[in-house]
Amino acid sequence: MRLWRWRNNPLRRRSDRIEAWIVLVARVLAVLGGVLVGLAAAGATDGALAAQRAHAYAVPAVLTQQAPKTPQASTDGSDGDTVWATVRWTGPGGGAHTGRTQVEPAAAAGTRVTVWTDRTGALVDEPLTPTESAFQAAATGLLAGSGTAVAVWAGGRLARARLDRRRLAAWDAEWERVGPQWRKRMTG
C-alpha cells in the first residue's frame, strides 16, 4: 500500500501523480539536504574552532593582588568556583600586560596562573580542546541537518495540504454539477 500513488489505476487522478512526486522529492531532499547541510555546518564549526585554537596561546601570568576568598553573586556567567583577579603577563613583543581573569579563590599575590592570549598579547577565552571541538561540531551538524530536514518535510506537507484543498474544491464543484441529478434518481 505504500506505493499506491505510483500504481496504475483508472481512478488515479492527475493530483495523485503530483502528490506522488511531491512526496518523493520531499523525502529525497530532506535526507540529502539534511546530510549535506549537516556535514557543511560541522565542517565549518570544526574549522572555526581549529582556527581559534591555532590563534590562542597559553602564557604564564602572575597575580598582582590577593584574590577574593569567596565568589560574588555571579551575573557574568562564571560558574562560581573561581573569582576574578588582576594578573600581569609578558606579551609576545616583551611588553608587560595586565588584565582580569578567573583564578582560584584566596590565591596569594604572586601566584602563577596560566592565561590565554592572542598574538598581540590581549586576553582571549581558553579555546576548546580537540575533543570538545569535535563534540561541538557534531552537535552543530546534527542540529543544522535536522533543521534542514524538518524544514523540507514541512514544505512537502504544506504542498500536499494545498493540493488537498484543491482536490476538495474540485470535488465540491463536481458534486454541485452531479448532485442534483443524483437526488432526482434517488427520490424519483
Results as ranks from 00 to 15, higher is better:
Leu168Cys: 10
Ala48Asn: 13
Gly33Val: 06
Asn9Ile: 11
Gly155Ala: 13
Gly95Leu: 07
Val87Ser: 00
Gly179Ala: 14
Ala134Pro: 02
Gly94Leu: 09
Met186Asp: 09
Arg27Met: 13
Gly99Asp: 11
Val115His: 04
Trp6His: 12
Val62Gly: 02
Gly95His: 14
Tyr57Ser: 06
Asp79Met: 09
Val23Asn: 00
Trp175Met: 08
Arg167Gln: 11
Pro127Ile: 15
Leu143Phe: 06
Ala30Arg: 02
Gly99Trp: 03
Val37Met: 07
Ala107Asp: 01
Asp118Cys: 10
Thr187Val: 14
Pro68Ala: 15
Arg27Ser: 09
Thr98Cys: 01
Arg27His: 09
Arg12Thr: 12
Gly91Ser: 14
Asn8Val: 07
Ala137Tyr: 01
Asp76Pro: 00
Pro10Ser: 14
Pro71Phe: 12
Met1Asp: 14
Lys69Thr: 14
Glu126Asn: 13
Ser15Thr: 04
Gly33Gln: 01
Leu168Arg: 15
Gly80Met: 09
Arg12Tyr: 08
Ala42Lys: 02
Ala58Pro: 13
Gly43Lys: 10
Ala108Glu: 08
Gly80Arg: 10
Arg183Leu: 07
Leu36Asp: 00
Ala170Ile: 00
Ala134Gln: 11
Trp21Cys: 11
Ala48Thr: 12
Arg166Asp: 07
Gly33Ile: 07
Leu49Ala: 06
Thr129Gly: 09
Arg177Glu: 06
Arg177Ile: 00
Gly34Cys: 01
